[in-house]
Design a protein around this nucleic acid. Structure first.
Length: 436
DNA sequence: CGAAGACCT
DNA sequence: CAGCCAGGTCTTCGA
């Protein structure tokens, strides 16, 4: 077993130097407790997670790669046939030339750089206009799987067939962790191929994986901070938050909500976390911007306390120049004071999102400390191996897995006491896919 | 090395 | 008149 990775030692040391050199500044900002009680103790937890790693199923990787590679080949050939000649589909420039000049299709959007967009979102609007479109979308899915996951990852595994990521503690503006080299926080999960991808990540022989997800943790944090009666009530009674929102919005019984109405409420609930504007909402729901504006107005009319919380939050940020999270983490937002409307509007959304996303990060980091220190889990042989923002993954000897799952649930649900309960969904399985 | 694109929460 | 919701990492292209 290798010793602590050098970068981790260096990080721990740098953190201590920082503590000594800047203690007055930390103290003045009220950040000492966050540093001493959360971030510094987290370092050995992350080091253990990095050192332990996660098992991959080489045979599953190999057969999946073979199938996907064959599909990349065949789709490339079909693509060239449909385009009337060979070109590099991986080049957005060449692709745009084929689609919008050679075939004369109407561009459905532009990139931030001003080029004609060939992104999936733009291409989906053209689907049905030419058989090439569907072919490109399918090509991109398999090519992503091949180039980012299936081909490189097996080469990164150690002699025991385990993959070791790095959990970066200083990479985000909100207090989240990030993962790199390889990133194990963005393994595909959607669709049959996503599911198959996650099935390539397994427990070691004789062990099981326990996956524990915080359910709606960001909306619960928002309910806690805002104390909005509608949100708080919904979570206290463990109701479906999106149906509940839809019921409120459309003045119907929750049981009478259509799938479309629930989808609208879900989009607006999520958009809320990001400070979504009417344009984006309109696009997401295929309605006009004016309809979206009305929708948002009605939403805030029904959730007046939430609206007041947002206004106070932004007001506070403008007065202090920063926002703070549940654990007292701080994000400076100098761009709040930009004279450029676009820039200051972005900073306002960042202020809102940071309080919510950062507080959720505080919660799971604390849960990681408790999990790592828990004697019952240690006694069961349970080891924390991954964190994916609102999910923890344990590897546990198989006869102890279900017991460990309940201990973990208890730790995660009770790590902090909010005005609404925290809920954790748990799965146990031989692979990461099965554990979900 | 920046842009574009695609994957995640 | 355009305006596009937060936080990340990785791959590929093309200058």
């Amino acid at each position: 077993m290798p010793s602590t990775p050098p970068h981790r030692e260096a990080q721990a040391q740098a953190a201590l130097v920082c503590m000594h050199g800047y203690e007055p500044r930390l103290e003045a900002a009220g950040l000492t407790a966050l540093m001493r009680e959360l971030e510094l103790p987290l370092i050995p937890v992350l080091a253990d997670m990095e050192r332990i790693g996660i098992c991959i199923d080489f045979a599953a990787f190999k057969s999946f790669l073979a199938e996907v590679s064959a599909e990349v080949e065949s789709r490339t050939a079909r693509l060239h046939e449909l385009a009337g000649g060979p070109f590099n589909v991986r080049s957005s420039q060449q692709l745009a030339q084929i689609l919008f000049q050679k075939l004369g299709l109407k561009p459905a959007g532009k990139t931030p750089g001003g080029a004609l967009s060939t992104a999936n979102e733009a291409l989906e609007k053209l689907e049905g206009q030419h058989p090439l479109i569907a072919e490109i979308l399918a090509f991109r899915t398999v090519e992503k799987l091949r180039s980012t996951y299936l081909e490189p990852m097996p080469r990164l595994a150690d002699a025991h067939g385990r993959l070791h990521t790095r959990f970066n503690q200083l990479a985000t503006a909100t207090g989240r962790l990030s993962s790199s080299g390889p990133n194990l926080q963005n393994i595909p999960i959607r669709g049959p191929q996503g599911k198959r991808m996650r099935a390539c990540f397994t427990a070691a022989e004789g062990n099981l994986l326990v996956a524990a997800d915080y359910s709606q943790v960001e909306l619960r944090v928002l309910a806690h901070f805002s104390q909005d009666p509608a949100l708080v009530e919904a979570f206290l009674h463990d109701e479906d938050i999106h149906s509940r929102t839809a019921a409120l919005l459309f003045e119907k019984d929750a049981s009478a909500i259509s799938p479309d109405e629930r989808r609208g409420a879900k989009t607006i609930n999520f958009g809320l976390i990001y400070g979504m504007g009417p344009q984006k909402l309109a696009r997401e729901l295929s309605i006009t911007t004016n309809q979206a504006k009305e929708f948002i107005a009605r939403y805030f009319e029904k959730l007046g306390t939430l609206k007041a919380f947002y206004e106070t939050l932004v007001q506070d940020a403008l007065e202090r120049g920063f926002v703070t999270t549940l654990a007292g983490r701080r994000r400076l937002l100098p761009e709040l004071f930009s004279r450029n409307q676009q820039v200051s509007a972005t900073a306002r959304r960042q202020a809102i999102n940071t309080v919510i996303q950062g507080s959720a990060a505080d919660v799971i980091k604390l849960a990681m400390l408790r999990t790592h220190a828990d004697q019952a889990l240690a006694g069961l042989g349970a080891r924390l191996i991954l964190q994916v923002h609102d999910e923890l993954l344990l590897e546990v000897p198989e006869d102890a897995a279900h017991q460990a799952a309940e201990v973990l649930r208890d730790i995660m649900q009770n790590v902090v006491s909010l005005r609404v309960p925290l809920k954790v969904d748990i799965g146990v399985g031989r692979t990461w896919a099965e554990a979900h």
